[in-house]
């Protein structure tokens, strides 16, 4: 199918894009890499009057290496992470995750900001940013604000972004050099959206563990009790029970099969991190 007609605004700066969003009064949408928005336009699933193209705003393509964190402009592509053309403070987790998003032709154009703004619960960056305790820098008519990735996602395709705000950058804290990550993803087909995914971060030197499960029909779930149980030395079935109970307590009404899948995926994520 082809998109319905819309008007086009090529933004010259972040402020210009925000002004166009404000003028659009809820019927304008930001076009970043277009790898989700344009398919939705083609399928006529994204009702809008105006597309605001931010691809010419060069500042949004930059990445900065700061002392305690790395700041990525919203337009940094998945392929740029995959090829390590931008700095990495995640001990290789971000390049690894990026290389598994969709297909190379999509990764060449798809952006981290666009992916987060859509907030598909099964998308890779959302779970990754929550796991890495990243934050988003958001530009709006009243200026800039920062929000933690975990607070940014409210639910499936639902974020903290107001209709006249846009993501300007993503800031990821530099992780400890002794931290190890585990990643496990179940997808029906290579490059497909995840059925379930888990990221575990374990730092034995600091007695630290963090476990996040994504593709859970809403915001990614941070399993704090399970991470603590892992640190307390629980393994195998004793650990499974804690993960399962914590997933159940999230109130997502998982079917028995999905609950088993998420539990298994979380276990494998933790095992992956522990084995490194």
């Amino acid at each position: 199918m082809k998109p319905a007609p819309f008007s086009y605004h090529r933004a010259t700066s972040v402020d210009d894009a925000v002004a166009a969003l404000t003028q659009g009064a809820g019927m304008a949408r930001i076009l970043a890499g277009g790898q989700s928005l344009v398919p939705m336009l083609n399928l006529r699933l994204a009702p809008l009057d105006t597309v605001i193209d931010i691809s010419r705003v060069d500042s949004l393509r930059q990445a900065h290496d700061d002392a305690d964190s790395v700041r990525y402009g919203a337009l940094v592509t998945h392929a740029a992470f995959e090829d390590r053309r931008v700095p990495d403070g995640s001990n290789g987790l971000m390049p690894f995750v990026a290389g598994q998003i969709a297909y190379r032709a999509v990764r060449n154009r798809g952006t981290i900001g666009g992916s987060l703004a859509l907030a598909d619960p099964a998308a890779d960056w959302l779970t990754t940013l929550v796991a890495l305790e990243g934050k988003l820098l958001i530009a709006g008519p009243e200026g800039r604000r920062a929000v933690a990735a975990a607070d940014f996602v409210i639910g499936s395709y639902l974020t903290d972004l107001a209709e006249n705000e846009m993501i300007e950058a993503v800031v990821v804290p530099r992780r400890s050099a002794t931290e190890r990550w585990g990643h496990y993803k179940v997808a029906r087909k290579t490059g497909e959206y995840a059925e379930s995914m888990a990221i575990a971060l374990v730092d034995k030197a600091r007695n630290y563990a963090r476990l996040v499960v994504g593709a859970t029909d809403g915001a990614p779930l941070v399993l704090e009790q399970a991470a603590q149980a892992f640190l307390d030395g629980r393994t195998d079935d004793a650990l499974r029970v804690v993960i399962r109970d914590e997933l159940l307590a999230a109130g997502r009404e998982f079917s028995a099969a999905r609950l088993t899948m998420h539990t298994t995926v979380a276990m494998r994520g933790l095992k992956g991190a522990a084995a490194k």
């Binding site: 597309v51 060449n108 154009r109």
Partner: peptide, 8 residues
Amino acid sequence: PARACIAL
């Protein structure tokens, strides 16, 4: 490489 069907 890029998808020409989802590039405007």
